[in-house]
Write a protein that binds this DNA or RNA. Structure first.
Length: 348
DNA sequence: CAATCGTGGCC
DNA sequence: TGGCCAAGATT
């Protein structure tokens, strides 16, 4: 009978191999008494939802330099936060980030609650993030269950139950391994293990501190776990984006509604996105079609965006959207799909 | 509760 | 190229 893996063995590994990250207090400093800033822990966890560490780093630096405290962030203008988030994706996170900051500033006197149950009530904070903030920021013995931990548990216990069905069971596995001492470092250690050793493809089992306790290693099934439900294939949708440039260089843009795809972000006025998009120019003009189209893949569909451009006189009012002066317009305030359309149409 | 919600890197 | 994957939450 194989023994359960011990948290201590992982912590020893973590003390040696913890990756340096802008939001992380390294294990040595932590054990010397340095405590993490809950605001930075929360900020990083929101940004890291379904997003790679590499993609998050520069955004985290920008946000925390521009808004050093949750009170600063609470006082920011919506459009500034959305623009700063542009390119990172899943824009509901940015809207909820700001909502949450305002709740913390107004209802909690600027300090984050410690309890998992209280954190769970905050906008944009779900079971994972509540456990992450509670454990990492306050060293509470909560169990984090993210994609890394799911993979590690599936392998340690050689459980072939497909996700997401297996989630509750995997949480029980993870909970049974969570230690009362250094739970914050432990939470980060399991995730680091999943990110660097117990990887989705070609896991480096030879370097794993838990190898001798891993059922999948013993059975040779590590690489095929965790099992997942088959995914649907993505349909392709078509659309038209209208890039109107006024003779002074101002661009015609539109703020998208808060709900739905790219909610709250700036974008080019456009058609619907579907099988046969209907023409919907936002202003009367001589529209020209660019030769290439913008291709972009969202979570659940492919988009092929036809870009049309026009030059319009100063005195012509648009039916939709607002002109943004050239000294105010920033390409990088746009979500990626809109940047692609801009890159195709900016020269015309 | 299954569907929705971005993007970039990797193979 | 296209599917997979990443420190998930919301409805």
């Amino acid at each position: 009978m194989r023994e359960l893996p011990r948290a201590d063995d992982l912590l020893v590994w973590y003390d040696r191999h913890a990756r340096a990250m802008p939001w992380r207090v390294p294990p040595a400093a932590r054990q010397a008494g340095v405590t993490p800033d809950p605001y930075r822990v929360w900020m990083s966890e929101i940004m890291l939802q379904q997003t790679t560490v590499a993609a998050v780093k520069s955004y985290f630096e920008t946000f925390t330099e521009r808004w050093p405290t949750v009170t600063d962030l609470a006082g920011a203008a919506d459009e500034d936060v959305m623009a700063a988030w542009a390119g990172l994706g899943y824009y509901a996170r940015a809207r909820n980030l700001l909502k949450c900051a305002r709740v913390i500033a107004e209802d909690y006197g600027g300090s984050f609650p410690r309890e998992h149950a209280d954190l769970l009530l905050l906008p944009g904070v779900g079971p994972y993030t509540a456990a992450a903030v509670s454990s990492i920021a306050y060293d509470a013995p909560e169990t984090v269950l993210d994609g890394n931990v799911e993979r590690v548990m599936a392998r340690i216990f050689n459980d072939h139950t497909p996700l997401p069905q297996a989630k509750p069971v995997f949480h029980n596995y993870a909970s049974s391994l969570t230690p009362p001492l250094r739970p914050g470092d432990y939470a980060q250690a399991v995730m680091d293990l999943g990110a660097t050793i117990c990887t989705p493809k070609n896991p480096a089992c030879g370097l794993c501190p838990w190898r001798s306790n891993c059922a999948a290693w013993a059975e040779g099934t590590a690489a095929e776990l965790p099992k997942k439900m088959p995914k649907k294939r993505k349909p392709t949708r078509l659309g038209i984006a209208y890039l109107a440039k006024r003779v002074d260089g101002a661009w015609l843009l539109e703020r998208r509604p808060d709900k739905g795809l790219l909610g709250g972000m700036l974008g080019w006025p456009g058609s619907d996105w579907g099988d046969a998009p209907t023409e919907a120019p936002p202003i009367r003009a001589q529209w020209k079609e660019t030769t290439a189209e913008a291709r972009h893949t969202f979570t659940h569909f492919h988009l092929r965006l036809t870009v049309k451009t026009a030059l319009v006189p100063m005195d012509r009012a648009p039916d939709r959207g607002e002109f943004v002066e050239p000294n105010v317009f920033e390409r990088d305030d746009l979500p990626t799909v809109m940047r692609k359309a801009y890159d195709l149409g900016k020269g015309s």
